[in-house]
Amino acid sequence: MPHDPLDALIEAAARVLDLPLEPEWKPAVAANLRVTLEHAAAVEAFALPDDAEPAPVFRA
């Protein structure tokens, strides 16, 4: 069975970001990440112009 790239991302990100990750936590982390990335893909697919401003505005 091919290695799920999400599992590879989770393992690599945990090491790079110095996050603890017990083996028994991985299924729940993967399930949460999968849902989050689904939401992200939906938002990402919504076309906005290059000059769209993010909502928060910093005022100097």
Binding site: L19, N32, E44
Partner: peptide, 24 residues
Amino acid sequence: RDRFIAAAMVPGTLAVKAQKFRRW
């Protein structure tokens, strides 16, 4: 914990797009 650990691994580019969508 598991929700936050997963969220820490989400690319920041996606959060910026969400903030742009918020203004739209």
